[in-house]
Design a protein around this nucleic acid. Structure first.
Lengths: 332, 332
DNA sequence: CACTTGCCTGGAAGCGCTTCCAGTGCAGGC
DNA sequence: GCCTGCACTGGAAGCGCTTCCAGGCAAGTG
């Protein structure tokens, strides 16, 4: 960042007082054109940029709240829904959103360290990731409120869905629709919500074969599906921990000529856009509500310290479509 | 936001000096447990929160750059690609991203007014929207760099694609594939890039019938398509200004039983995820590059004032798939 | 018992800016 | 020729905090 040029340096160079420099910067009409010109020149020569903290402090502006959102750029739709809802929830308030991409744990810690050390925010929204006890202590010391989206937490308020139940719903639906030999397409482990689904799937389906996709996109889902099917050609159903992987599975099945749902059934998770058109059976989760709740909660925590918002476990729904068969009432 | 409780009020209540309060807040070990307790209590009672500007100023922290990103939450994929790329570009630098949702012109002006009045940022990225001469003057006065994504500008650096050319590409492809009576599904006017495509489409297709979707999502696209087809049942092709609308069109065509591409061809724009699977013919635009360029540019403008990055017109490509027919070499 | 040694604490000096207030210089009015 | 008024300018007082420095006090040392 630019060197530490202060208003004094500018004033010196222009041969005026700092008050005058300040006036020029703030567009006061009370400055003669020549002086204004000299000051402008000096500012440009020095590459001077006002120190925002000092401006705020001296100017006594309205107190601005900054909400830092830490989230992994996993899925476009999840990311979009959550941040959009957050932004809308905060739109009326004098708070704004700062976005941080968190690729892994060290990323997260680096960002948090900086954020806390520099007091760069007044509230924290953690999406799909969590923090330990020490961090919590640190936050408490700083009086920094934090909420979690898509994860539960013993000490911090959270909003999420029951991913284990989601996994069970998927498994049961597949069974009900007559699946005998289901397989699982899981996602990278660092996505905890998806890992929970996979674990529940595993448990409910009793050790079904499983393949882990390298990323949360359809191409990776297609690769994983092909590998799984190579090892287990007799699979008649695929439970995918999210919709993107499920579309990848459909892609792979189409390319090797297996009919869906007659030969292989497929179920996803999320119900993101276009799944309707594609006809994917999936579990719908209310992503926007995550953002709304988080926005409202962090705002109350900031304005009324000490008050803790209620945790929320949001409802999920099975959305049966054409990639699974009609449920059999009395399947064994 | 919380009342104006300062460190002095806390010190008074706790019966200590402000230096001690500061020590407690910053976790210095140099405070006796009883004192620490009293101060903590006073902080809680008063609901005290340190003034960030003052902390920064006194602490002499690293200068932090804030980049404000103004963007309409139009399409999940566009939004995701751009902000992700921006975030990654800025990840190494000591700059962070503040996100503002811009629904309309007044929204934009409100946000800009606040941002500038409060000196809340060091750089501006405008996505899909523009600003007038007066604003530019104001930015220059404040020495605030700004770049535009998805729009051109006479005074500010920009990155975009040639949307008019994109519209022409769509129209020509449709013609080449034998379309005789094409229709246009346009988007809401406030999305200028899409309006440019629609205008070029209009011009190239010589007054083809056209319907404007109420929103940029497939449901709206389906509605628009149904209406257009009701007025013009003989249409044999649909040019949609983005992929979501195109999927809506496919939906509508499926629901009324028109075969694609035999009876009606469809072309979209963007090439977002799943379009591959759906088989939609479309125009691909490099959204991520928008974000990368913007991030790099704004960073150089901040660090080296006066230097203006080059404008960039990025390439686009036609991606022929199954919703259009095989091109006829010598179609009239 | 005088004297270090530490621990804990408060006073006060800034951090870089805005803004009030008090000039300064100069034109015009008497 | 002196005063008023005006346009412009600089000095200086904070804004709320961190942190250096020095002081007070109890415990430990000779």
């Amino acid at each position: 960042m630019p060197a530490d040029v202060t208003i004094y340096a500018v004033a010196d160079l222009a041969g005026v007082g700092i008050a005058t420099v300040s006036r020029v910067i703030n567009g006061s009409p009370q400055v003669s054109p020549q002086t204004r010109g000299r000051v402008r020149q000096a500012i440009a020569d020095l590459g001077y940029r006002p120190n925002r903290a000092a401006c705020h402090l001296a100017g006594g502006r309205t107190r601005q709240a900054r909400i830092a959102v830490l989230l992994p750029f996993f899925s476009a739709h999840f990311y979009f829904s959550v941040t959009k809802a957050l932004a809308h929830e905060l739109a009326g308030s004098p708070a704004d959103l700062a976005l941080y991409d968190i690729r892994d744990r060290s990323d997260k810690n680096r960002v948090l360290d900086r954020l806390l050390a520099e007091r760069a925010c007044d509230g924290l929204v953690l999406v799909g990731c969590s923090i330990g006890d020490q961090r919590c202590d640190q936050l408490e010391r700083l009086g920094l409120p934090a909420v979690l989206i898509d994860r539960r937490h013993p000490r911090l308020p959270w909003v999420t869905i029951d991913n284990a139940r989601g996994g069970r719903l998927m498994a049961e639906h597949l069974r009900t629709c007559g699946a005998r030999r289901p397989g699982i397409i899981a996602g990278p482990d660092r996505a905890v919500a998806l890992a929970d689904r996979a674990a529940a799937l595993d448990a409910t389906l009793g050790g079904a074969p499983r393949e882990t996709a390298a990323a949360l996109e359809s191409a990776a889902g297609a690769v994983a599906t092909r590998e799984l099917l190579e090892r287990h050609p007799d699979l008649d159903a695929l439970a995918c921990v999210n919709d993107a992987l499920a579309v990848g599975a459909l892609e792979a099945l189409r390319s090797i000529g297996r009919r869906v749902p007659d030969e292989v059934q497929v179920i996803g998770f999320d119900d993101q856009p276009f799944m309707d058109f594609i006809g994917l059976t999936t579990i719908r989760q209310p992503m926007a509500t995550f953002g709304h709740w988080a926005g409202r909660s962090i705002l109350t925590m900031i304005t009324r310290p000490g008050q803790r918002p209620d945790d929320r476990l949001l409802p999920i729904h099975l959305v049966p479509r054409h990639t699974t068969r009609t449920p059999q009432e009395h399947s064994p």
